[in-house]
Design a protein around this nucleic acid. Sequence first.
DNA 1: ACAAATAGGTCAATTATATTGTCCTAATAA
DNA 2: TTATTAGGACAATATAATTGACCTATTTGT
Lengths: 157, 157
Amino acid sequence: MNEEEQQLNKVLMLFYFGYRTFTEKPDQMIEKYGIQRVHHRILFFIARVPGITVNDLLSILEVSKQALNAPLRQLYEKNLIKMVHADYDKRFKQLYLTDQGKQLESELSHVQREQMKTIFNSLGGNHQEAWIDVMNVLAKVRPGQQFFNEQNGERCD
Amino acid sequence: MNEEEQQLNKVLMLFYFGYRTFTEKPDQMIEKYGIQRVHHRILFFIARVPGITVNDLLSILEVSKQALNAPLRQLYEKNLIKMVHADYDKRFKQLYLTDQGKQLESELSHVQREQMKTIFNSLGGNHQEAWIDVMNVLAKVRPGQQFFNEQNGERCD
DNA sequence: ACAAATAGGTCAATTATATTGTCCTAATAA
DNA sequence: TTATTAGGACAATATAATTGACCTATTTGT
């Protein structure tokens, strides 16, 4: 067991512990709304890609449509998201946050942004860029990544 | 929505996508052993802290003892871990990997180490250090972190 | 010696998250 | 007009986690 291997074992541990801390605060905050982490993820990605269709959201989250359906309905019933039949094809439903949904999503993501911003600022230098570079290599293999590569906030056809 | 906020929203997305890629390969590898991610985490931490007690492992994983008990029993039944009553207090059970457990843990962690190593090496510079610095800030608030701060591989009393 | 505390195990009920499979409607395309 | 597609719904199942209650064995403190 050489030193490099030990360092990399620490990296694996840090990934586990780090992600846990990252998700901790929003998990606590959403409890009182009667929703869970999966709902937070949905709110987050609808906020990033307003007007996204159900199928495209599925490919970002990489879950089955049955897994998405229930939390989506719950968010609708809690008036946190809107569904609009697309003009260009009425089979498609486009998903948007309601004002209430925008408010909640913004609160949740704000906490995480501040958490990361504080860390990047306290470490200074090029820590933020370096961290992003590393995570980008991991993230780029995800199918949902395609929605965030370029300037396609809505859809292009 | 200024540029900094957009950059930080990307950071949140990268954390989700990145962690997903990080856990993907071991998840697939352990399928054929009939175990899941929770078992991998247990194997990983027993490998890092051989002789750890059940209670200490609980505090690292931050789950209830009921949540740990079943997967621990399954790993024992599959001959991947050993349990030894501690010399210093027979109430304590010390956990160790069997040779088979060491073999499997080493395969799983090897894949993740290589994945991260490849990324760090390809990006070069101080990317590895910077990434570790950032994750260390997040990880240090975890209670289980105490087992990895200094030179206490076993226990000190 | 005996009561209290500790480490750990077990059983039950519940919740959340996810899967696959099947079947359905509505809308569009060939 | 048939086939395909987007989406929804229901059922059965699996995994992962919770809280609560109760049990044994061991050690500690009085």
